[in-house]
C-alpha cells in the first residue's frame, strides 16, 4: 500500500452502529487529491452513513480518519469543515423558512462594516449579491433569491445546497468535497453542469467522493469506483478496469466481493 500521506482522505477500519444495527462494517477507503471516487450501492447500503462519518455529522464507533496523512477526530461538522471537508447532504440540510441567500451563507454571514458589524448586524445587500454570484457560478436558475427555499423547486433546492458546499470547498487550500446524490432532483441541463463542476473540482486538486445511483454519471466523472453492499465494502476498482455489468453485480450482490480488501 502506498504511503498514506499521499492521500487527501483515508479511512481505516471504520465501524458505525445505529443502536444495534451495524451500518458500516470495517470500511477502508483512500482518496487522493484531485481524484474523484464514486461510492455506489443499493438503498440502505451505508453510503450516506459513511459520508456523514467523514463530514463529522456522525461519530464512528471504531476506526481512524486521516486527512492529508494526519489522524483527526471530528466532534461535529465544524471540525471537518476546518479540516477542509464540505458535504452536500442527501436531505440537503436547508432551512426551509429562510431565503436562498441566508441558506447559502449560513454560518458564513456577511456582517456590516463598523460598529453595527461588531454588534452582529448582517449586511443583507452584500449577502444577496454574494449569493447571486455563487448561484450563477453553478448555473442554478433561481429568479428570486429572497423567496424562502421551501417555495423553490426540488432542483433549485438541490442547486442551493450544491452551491453552498462547492463555493466553500473551492476556497480551501486542499479541499475534500462529499456529494450525496447531488443530481437526484436535477434536470438534464443542470446535471451536465454538475458533471462539469465535479471535473473542475478534480482539476483543481480537490478530492471528491460522489454517492450516486446514476451509473452513467459515475462512469463519466469518477477515477475509481467503490461499492458498498449491506454495510461492507465489496469492490474498489479503477473505472477503466471495470464495466457497468460488473458494478451492477457488486451493487446487487450477484457478484462476489473482491478479495483482500
Amino acid at each position: 500500500m502506498a504511503n498514506t500521506s499521499e492521500y487527501a482522505l483515508s479511512l481505516e477500519g471504520i465501524d458505525l452502529y445505529y443502536g444495534y444495527v451495524r451500518a458500516l462494517n470495517n470500511i477502508n477507503l483512500n482518496v487522493a487529491p484531485g481524484e474523484c471516487v464514486a461510492l455506489l450501492g443499493d438503498n440502505g447500503a451505508g453510503k450516506s452513513t459513511l459520508l456523514k462519518v467523514i463530514s463529522g455529522a456522525h461519530k464512528p464507533s471504531h476506526g481512524t480518519i486521516k486527512v492529508h496523512g494526519k489522524a483527526v477526530e471530528f466532534h461535529n461538522p465544524k471540525d471537518s469543515a476546518n479540516a477542509g471537508i464540505e458535504m452536500v447532504y442527501q436531505d440537503l440540510a436547508l432551512v426551509d423558512a429562510q431565503d436562498t441567500a441566508t441558506n447559502l451563507l449560513l454560518g458564513k454571514e456577511i456582517l456590516r462594516k463598523g460598529i453595527l458589524g461588531m454588534l452582529g448586524f448582517v449586511d443583507r445587500k452584500a449577502m444577496r449579491e454574494e449569493a447571486k454570484r455563487e448561484v450563477a457560478q453553478l448555473g442554478v436558475k433561481i429568479d428570486t433569491l429572497t423567496r424562502p427555499v421551501e417555495m423553490l423547486s426540488g432542483g433549485q433546492r438541490q442547486g442551493v445546497a450544491l452551491a453552498r458546499s462547492a463555493v466553500r470547498v473551492a476556497k480551501k487550500a486542499q479541499g475534500i468535497l462529499l456529494l450525496d446524490e447531488p443530481t437526484a432532483a436535477l434536470g438534464y441541463e443542470q446535471k451536465v453542469m454538475v458533471e462539469q463542476m465535479i471535473k473542475r473540482m478534480s482539476a483543481n486538486n480537490i478530492a471528491v467522493v460522489l454517492v450516486t445511483h446514476d451509473l452513467p454519471l459515475a462512469f463519466s466523472t469518477a477515477d475509481r469506483m467503490v461499492v458498498l453492499n449491506r454495510s461492507r465494502k465489496v469492490a474498489d476498482i479503477a473505472t477503466k478496469d471495470t464495466t457497468n455489468d460488473q458494478i451492477v453485480g457488486w451493487i446487487t450482490g450477484a457478484r462476489d466481493s473482491m478479495e483482500n480488501m
Binding site: 463530514s55 455529522a57 461535529n76 461538522p77 465544524k78 469543515a81 458535504m87 447532504y89 440540510a93 436547508l94 432551512v95 426551509d96 423558512a97 429562510q98 441566508t102 449560513l106 454560518g107 458564513k108 454571514e109 456582517l111 454588534l119 452582529g120 448586524f121 448582517v122 453552498r164
Partner: peptide
C-alpha cells in the same frame, strides 16, 4: 437584522442544518 437572530431562527427551523453548516 443580526447574525445571531438569523441563526436563532435557523435553529428553530432546522437545527441539524445549522449544525452541519458549522454553527453550534
Amino acid at each position: 437584522q443580526t447574525r445571531g437572530g438569523g441563526r436563532f431562527m435557523a435553529a428553530g427551523g432546522n437545527a441539524e442544518a445549522l449544525r452541519r453548516s458549522g454553527v453550534n
